[in-house]
């Protein structure tokens, strides 16, 4: 059951997003309302062009909604307009990102790829590296801490990317096809890891995915159709 808005880490109310005007207008999101509570792992499904990525971009504060209200960790950040100017800082403090193709910086080793987020947040270099190594060990890739991304396997790279997403202890984790580049065994391991993190850190995980093999790892699955959000039961009924 969806939690009340006041307890939610992510709360969307009546979010609309359209591109263009007049005959070229495209309504990408229509009246989206969504609450994600601490510890919840939620999937966004939908065919291509249904608005999944647009919704993820809105929650990531990199795309302006046309209308609606959005709160992150209880802070109202959008109400017909952004209520904060420093959206990059907001992302740095509140949101962790996991990508389909890990997106690690190729010129930094595993430790520095994690430490950079901490340094951007104001950590001293030594403290940042220490915390980065802790995280890599927690995710069982501590033995690869000095390896550059090109030398990591797909699973190892994705773990480093997860470590980076968690480095700043965000309570909202947005994942874009986090298991698409992994085989089914590693995909299950990554999803178990995300579930564990959500539980341990009371974080909310919102993932866009097409991977049916991992559907059973989500607490709720939402289907997006033509910019409208349907809950799990409706999606299954459809």
């Amino acid at each position: 059951m969806p939690a009340a808005a006041s307890e939610s880490l992510v709360s969307l109310r009546g979010i609309f997003k359209h591109f263009g005007e007049g005959e070229t207008r495209i309504d990408a999101l229509k009246d989206i309302s969504l609450n994600v509570s601490p510890g919840e792992v939620v999937a966004l499904l939908g065919p291509s062009g249904s608005g999944k990525t647009t919704l993820l971009n809105v929650i990531a504060c990199i795309l302006d909604p046309s209308q609606g209200r959005m709160s992150l960790e209880g802070e109202l950040v959008f109400d017909s307009k952004w209520l904060r100017q420093d959206l990059r800082r907001l992302r740095l403090d509140k949101i962790g990102f996991i990508f389909q193709f890990h997106n690690l910086l190729p010129f930094l080793n595993a430790t520095d790829n994690v430490a950079i987020v901490l340094q951007l947040a104001g950590y001293e270099p030594a403290a940042a590296r220490e915390r980065a190594i802790e995280l890599l060990e927690y995710l069982e890739v501590g033995n690869r801490k000095n390896a550059f991304p090109a030398k990591l396997s797909g699973g190892e790279a994705q773990r480093v990317a997860i470590a980076r997403a968690l480095a700043n202890r965000p309570r909202i984790i947005l994942a874009d096809e986090p298991t698409a580049a992994l085989d089914s065994k590693r995909a299950q391991i990554v999803m178990d890891l995300l579930r564990k993190l959500a539980a341990d850190q009371s974080a909310a995980v919102i993932a866009v995915t097409h991977d049916e093999k991992i559907f059973d790892r989500f607490d709720r699955i939402f289907m997006l159709r033509d910019g409208r959000l349907e809950d799990e039961r409706r999606a299954v009924a459809a």
């Binding site: 990531a60 990199i62 990059r88 992302r91 740095l92 910086l105 950079i116 987020v117 951007l120 947040a121």
Partner: peptide, 16 residues
Amino acid sequence: LRHIAMLKLIGAPDRT
């Protein structure tokens, strides 16, 4: 550019 976009996404300020 893709790495720069990623840096911006994770919160790197323009000065970095």
